[in-house]
Design a protein around this nucleic acid. Structure first.
Lengths: 338, 338
DNA sequence: CTTGGCAATGTAACTGGTTACATAGCGCCC
DNA sequence: GGGCGCTATGTAACCAGTTACATTGCCAAG
């Protein structure tokens, strides 16, 4: 039934008929104009223009076996972290002639598998995925379809897929060391959900290892400004006094700063705040946020280049670990409770 | 030459051969399993599983004339405003069986036209575009290809494409009225680039109309926290004293708040700050930001539904104007300079 | 015993391009 | 004047599916 029902434009044969040439000639005008006689070419071009002919993407794809489509399976776009990464991916990919389909998974492996399937169905030639924790259904899909997949935000050279990311444990460790060096001991740790999010889990694990278990408290909240507010509230309620707050994400730190101010605590006078990410906005909080810089843009760019080369030249990338480093600003200071 | 060079999986004929049936039967197993005999069906399904057969998206598309792909041409993803909109678009579109390709234009009409062309080449069935200012090349593309395009972030029922957005002039007017009602007169207006961005232009025009020209000053800066900082610096340098700052975007307001604090000015004691957008983070600035709420999520959802229906059932949507309203928080207060 | 209906399957023509190969026409040289 | 090479173009097979139509076999009704 769908046959013919859809309004469709002119096709190659229509053009060839109208121009009085064969389909091959029209095709040549489109693909290698120099081999066709100038007069013929101009006539064909005129007909193309007149009829408003546009090549069918599907027909192109069926012949070349290429769609030039890549898919990004990311937890969310509503967090600057991923928006930044996706943005630089997209900008890098255009340069390689690829387009990017974004699909959000909400950190749910089932949703990821389902959307991955849909992306395969529309013809993506490769995936970006977040982290190294995925469902069997998803791995199964990769195995069957042999579509390349590149994991980002996490570095693990033992993983069976290439990873391009940073050492999340190290990032957390740097923050903890910074707090310890300043003399802080009683520390509230505010982190995002651990289920399905291996980045958070790695950070929390490293934090547990780095800090004195007797004097640190963990609070799980959504990764959002509101989550940071809630975490800070709970910390103030449940711990008596604390020297510092360690947030697993700048976004949460924004909320923490807000809530500490609201409670009349000064930062870093009463409480130091350290975080992970170094978002563009973190330079301009009040006070400016001390945070461990994760190179989100650089990661997006590297990942894009690697995946582009992988699907293009069949060159499987090797895992890369990008550097992270502490950016000291105004939100942390030496311990000074009398 | 590309012929055969690309590693490709088994196709329909391979499956039919291995299962000892015709291609039609295999196709039926995939599309209308109930019409094929149970034994045959199970045998074919087993072969499909064993060979790891996956339907070619391109072949599917060439037959149906559908790709189920839509494209979003947005200025940037690095701003929460668009990240929020795109996010809700994507989530709504999955429900309608569409995938979303994002392409950033950096508010440059040439880039937009170029990327639009690329999107057509990969086969999108419809576009989301931002605002109503676009290049001739882009309009030409729409005319030739007859691909539906829906403009967002801007409402204008006289525009030749359907628009789903809000009244940007009204939003600015609401903010100005609020400041005037509080008794503020000397006002610094900090806005984003006007070239190629009709949303900003509409807001600035409305502001010029609403405020006393003798006592308001306009500063153009990039739409970013850093842009807000720079704008506030220039305002303090160039105007002597001012009662209030009106930012065209919450993102810039974040920077303004930061810079005012740094300069030792209290908000709203010395200066009131009002803005447009109402981002999730704006509830938790210090002080919480008074801002005109723009329904970004709702817009993304409505736009997605409208465009989906348009390409699906050929029902061209009518333009919709979504409501905006002032959210009064702590960053504005009555004029009280002695 | 024939005809009709139905279920299950096959054949081949389509979708809209690309391209290997064939062909035609022309000029040049021996 | 026949053979060669060149350019310009056409013919038809191909990509990987879908599907209209044809075919087959079986059972039941007339």
């Amino acid at each position: 039934m769908p046959r013919g029902s859809r309004k469709k434009g002119p096709n190659l044969r229509d053009v060839s008929r109208a121009a009085g040439v064969s389909v091959a000639t029209v095709s040549r005008v489109l693909n290698s104009p120099h081999v066709v006689n100038k007069d013929t070419r101009e006539r064909v071009e005129a007909v193309i223009e007149e009829l408003g002919f546009v090549r069918s993407a599907a027909a192109l794809a069926i012949n070349s076996g290429r769609t030039r489509l890549l898919g990004a399976l990311i937890p969310t776009l509503e967090s600057d972290i991923f928006a930044l990464t996706v943005s630089s991916m997209e900008q890098t990919l255009v340069q390689h002639g690829f387009s990017l389909i974004v699909a959000t998974t909400d950190d749910d492996p089932e949703t990821e598998a389902r959307k991955a399937r849909e992306l395969v169905d529309v013809g993506v030639e490769g995936f970006f995925i977040s982290g190294v924790t995925h469902s069997d259904a998803f791995y199964d899909l990769l195995r069957r379809t042999r579509v390349p997949a590149l994991a980002i935000s996490y570095f693990d050279e033992t993983y069976h897929l290439p990873t391009i990311g940073y050492d999340n444990r190290l990032a957390a460790d740097i923050a903890c060391t910074h707090l310890r060096e300043l003399g802080h001991d009683r520390i509230a740790v505010i982190h995002g959900p651990l289920t399905g999010n291996d980045r958070n889990k790695a950070r929390v694990d490293a934090t547990r290892a780095a800090l004195n278990a007797q004097s640190c408290w963990f609070f799980e909240e959504p990764i959002s400004v509101a989550g940071g507010v809630a975490g800070a509230k709970r910390a103030m309620d449940q711990i008596g006094q604390f020297d510092a707050v360690f947030c697993m994400s700048d976004v949460m730190a924004f909320g923490v700063l807000h809530e500490l101010h609201r409670a009349g605590l000064s930062v870093p006078g009463d409480v130091s705040v350290v975080s992970i990410h170094n978002l563009p906005a973190s330079e301009f909080t009040y006070p400016p946020l001390t945070t461990v810089h994760l190179p989100a843009r650089q990661m997006g760019q590297r990942a894009a280049e690697s995946l582009a080369r992988w699907v293009e030249d069949d060159m499987r990338p090797t895992s890369t670990c990008l550097g992270v480093h502490l950016v000291e600003r105004g939100s942390t200071g030496p311990f000074k409770r009398s």
